[in-house]
């Protein structure tokens, strides 16, 4: 399959406009696990994700939230229809079989309505499940690809390893940098750092001759292991570097460090 055709399939998929036969064609093609194709698909999916934010920004009425919570609370209680059925006055002059038939009819109607609504919900849920599973497949493929890239960096014969220890704000934190001078790629491993606040980012600094130079900005989503790859690392040779540090800075990073230092290490340590 040529690149143009592959991009057409990815575009249709990202916009939810792909035909079933073409979806099969795309899935078949992705089985080849070609890195450049996975990268193309990821870029197109990322681009399409911007579209929801393009709509004119409007706020719903406050009553929507009130109704939502009323409904959620109500769903935790018995259905009102059942209560109505049992509240037919016993003193009614209607014949017993008529009352019984009415009750049965009401119950059957409720059951039918329930199943009709459920079928519609199930259809919608199944569509979402399929979409989620496709995304899961892509996610797994991306992770495999990333792992292969990480192994390339770690496995290179000339790779440097720099360890960073946690400082006062987070003494249990630590980090490692694997730097491959040949490809000038670095793999950064961070662990034990607090989750990045919404208005902040962690920033990596390479310090040479007392001057810090930014080497990248990271968003830590959880305090377990996080890996980040940096292409075109700021230093081609870590041998002359004084230290490497991680600070917490305003979102997007700063030209020079201004926030608390969380990790610090030296190439010789």
């Amino acid at each position: 399959m040529n690149q143009e055709r592959f991009e057409e399939l990815c575009s249709a998929y990202a916009l939810g406009a792909i035909e079933p036969d073409e979806l099969k064609e795309l899935e078949q093609e992705l089985k080849n696990q070609r890195p450049e194709q996975l990268n193309t698909l990821r870029e197109i999916l990322n681009t399409a994700q911007v579209l929801p934010a393009s709509a004119e920004q409007l706020t719903p009425a406050d009553s929507v939230k009130d109704k939502l919570f009323t409904r959620i609370k109500a769903e935790g209680t018995p259905a009102s229809g059942e209560a109505n059925v049992t509240q037919i006055p016993a003193s009614s002059s209607t014949a017993p079989w008529v009352r019984l038939a009415a009750v049965l009819l009401a119950v059957i109607s409720l059951v039918l309505v329930y199943f009709t609504l459920n079928l519609a919900d199930e259809r919608s849920e199944l569509q979402e499940t399929v979409q989620i599973q496709r995304l899961e497949l892509l996610n797994l493929e991306e992770r495999l690809l990333a792992t292969e890239r990480y192994l390339d960096i770690i496995g290179s014969r000339d790779t440097y390893l720099v360890s960073m220890d946690g400082l006062d704000p987070s003494p249990s934190g630590f980090g490692r940098i694997y730097f491959d001078p040949e490809s000038r790629s670095a793999l950064v491993q961070l662990a034990g750092l607090p989750v990045t606040p919404s208005d902040k980012d962690y920033q990596l600094w390479v310090i040479r001759d007392g001057t810090p130079v930014s080497a990248g900005v990271f968003d830590v989503a959880d305090d377990r292991f996080s890996f980040y790859q940096i292409d075109q690392f700021v230093e081609a040779d870590l041998a002359g570097v004084d230290a490497i540090a991680v600070t917490l800075e305003p979102a997007g990073g700063m030209p020079e460090p201004t926030g608390d230092m969380f990790l610090l290490g030296t190439p010789s340590s």
Partner: peptide
């Protein structure tokens, strides 16, 4: 198909 692809690439 062609316009859809071109449009997304242009957006990107």
């Amino acid at each position: 198909k062609s316009r859809m692809r071109q449009g997304l690439i242009k957006l990107q």
